[in-house]
């Protein structure tokens, strides 16, 4: 693309779908780290299920990006052979794995966001995006339910779990705004009918869900944070992202051209 020319509608759509896919991919990667590390064996299995759902979403969407951007690239080209500056995910999902309370705070926010996002993609002008949304909407309802049940138990459990869950909400707070930023690709996508709503229009419903759970869990919503993450949609990431990619990509990159 030459400087100054407007991106083709397909290229604009590709950028949007890529951002949705990258969020799912990076969060799947982080959740994969829980397997063998969860607080009980049943939870190893539950988090693996969530990770597998997100991985499935990312794979289906990457395949579509390869068609929309005209490159014909496949899922592994996107996942394994892009550098940090080319990733479009928000900072929330790339943060290092913390304690279980942090994971549940992150999952509650992310699933609440995805719940609204996929609802807004159900009638997408792109049949693949609509199809993925239909399947993912069901998966995300389960993720939301899982996060909700744990936030309730941690918030209204022991003194220690209450303190940790409250701290986890404070930890997540600076990463929330970025989910709902109206980035350029999303604006283009709304114009193209790819998605019915801008990210900012998803916030009220998503935040409402989070607030309802937080209040039922005897917790309080954090005060507005003093800083907020930004830049993920433009490929500006936080420190953990490079390490995440190194782990994700190093085998593929060591054997260029190999199939697995």
């Amino acid at each position: 693309m030459t400087a100054g020319s407007a991106p083709s509608p397909e290229a604009g759509s590709a950028a949007y779908v890529l951002a949705v896919a990258d969020d799912a991919m990076v969060y799947a990667q982080r959740l994969g780290e829980w397997l063998t590390n969860a607080p009980q064996i049943e939870e190893d299995m539950a988090l693996a299920n969530v990770s597998l759902d997100l991985l499935g979403q990312a794979r289906a969407l990457y395949a579509r990006v390869g068609e929309l951007d005209g490159s014909g690239r496949g899922e592994d080209d996107y996942a394994m052979f892009r550098d940090e500056r080319q990733w479009r995910n928000v900072h929330l999902v790339e943060q290092e794995r913390g304690d279980f309370a942090r994971e549940m705070a992150r999952m509650l926010w992310f699933a609440s966001y995805q719940h609204e996002l996929y609802a807004a993609q159900l009638a997408s002008s792109d049949p693949v995006v609509a199809g993925v949304a239909g399947k993912a909407a069901k998966e995300v309802r389960y993720h939301l339910d899982h996060a909700r049940h744990w936030v309730l138990r941690l918030g209204d459990g022991t003194d220690e779990s209450h303190r940790r869950m409250q701290a986890a909400l404070e930890w997540a707070a600076p990463y929330v705004d970025e989910l709902f930023d109206d980035h350029a690709a999303a604006v283009t996508a709304v114009e193209a009918g790819l998605v019915a709503r801008l990210p900012s229009e998803l916030r009220e419903a998503a935040q409402g869900r989070v607030e309802a759970v937080v209040s039922e869990a005897t917790l309080t919503m954090p005060d507005p944070p003093t800083w907020r993450s930004r830049g993920g949609r433009d490929g500006i990431h936080s420190r953990p992202m490079g390490y995440l990619l190194a782990e994700l990509q190093h085998i593929s990159r060591s054997h260029p051209g190999a199939t697995w």
């Binding site: 780290e33 693996a48 990770s51 990457y62 899922e75 592994d76 994700l248 593929s252 697995w260």
Partner: peptide, 13 residues
Amino acid sequence: TRAPSLRRKAILT
């Protein structure tokens, strides 16, 4: 976290 393709990652998980 290091599986060499997304298909392998899903299977291994």
